[in-house]
């Protein structure tokens, strides 16, 4: 059935008979609509928010059991441990980023829209960051305290995690999009995405370490911000391309 293009300047509603209106898909959701939808969905699936956090806290609680409870040693390792665990928690939660939409076919619908796939991907990533990265960052000073991190490190740890996990979500989205058509992507996703996480990890822990050593941590934050800006511009493009490749499969 041919659907007449809707002329905004000259809306002739009589042309669209009621029969064809039903078959026309609902209005293309804009960025904010999509954002709201995704956020509502994420909030309703509680486990998606709680599980990465629980993972983060549980694994960090294992660390002193493994390496010993000496406060000095924990203090030296705290920033790195928290950062690596935040990285793993983000990575593990990323696998399901596009999975549900791929399986129920709505990803295909998004890809068929006349508008670029960039914005839907960005909306999904923003929501992913809001429900994983942001809570991790908010929780990090508490864990820092438990791991005997110096007080000077709390603020940089929070800010670097908030900035850094946003980049991690964006970069990971590329991997999630590349592997969405595969049946069990878990380890493969980690293998292809981990190397790309390295710069974020280095500058994130670098910022905390600089603050603990009594130096300014502005440069590291600036670089983290630059990485985030570059990732926000480029990663959704790559992820959109990857989604189209996956849908061809």
């Amino acid at each position: 059935m041919r659907v007449e293009p809707f002329d905004r300047a000259n809306p002739d509603l009589s042309k669209r008979d009621s029969g064809s209106v039903k078959s026309v898909p609902p209005r293309v959701p804009g960025f904010y609509t999509l954002l709201r939808t995704e956020f509502t969905l994420a909030v309703r699936r509680r486990s998606d928010i709680v599980n990465p956090l629980l993972f983060f806290v549980t694994v960090l609680a294992m660390m002193p059991l493994g390496i010993g409870p000496e406060p000095e040693m924990l203090a030296r390792m705290a920033a790195g441990l928290i950062w690596v665990m935040a990285l793993l928690a983000t990575l593990l939660s990323q696998e399901s980023l596009f999975r549900g939409d791929y399986e129920d076919g709505s990803l295909e619908q998004l890809a068929l829209q006349p508008q670029p796939l960039y914005f839907p991907v960005l909306a999904k990533v923003v929501v992913h960051w809001l429900v994983t990265g942001m809570p991790l960052a908010l929780l990090s000073p508490l864990l820092g305290m438990m791991l005997n991190l110096g007080e000077a490190g709390y603020w940089p740890l929070f800010v670097s995690l908030a900035l850094g996990t946003a980049s991690l979500s964006l970069i990971g989205a590329v991997g999630a999009a590349l592997t969405v058509a595969l049946r069990r992507p878990g380890l493969l996703l980690a293998l292809i995405i981990m190397p790309l996480y390295v710069p974020v990890l280095i500058f994130g822990t670098g910022a905390v370490q600089a603050a603990l050593d009594g130096y300014g941590y502005g440069p590291q934050m600036a670089i983290l911000g630059a990485i985030l800006a570059a990732a926000a511009a480029l990663a959704p493009l790559a992820a959109a391309g990857a989604i189209r490749i996956s849908l061809e499969n």
Binding site: V174, L178, L196, A238, I245, E248
Partner: peptide
């Protein structure tokens, strides 16, 4: 699909 996906990953990796 493997061709295209790994090509895209290789391009993303050049960032590093």
């Amino acid at each position: 699909s493997g061709d295209k996906a790994s090509a895209l990953l290789a391009l993303v990796g050049t960032v590093n």
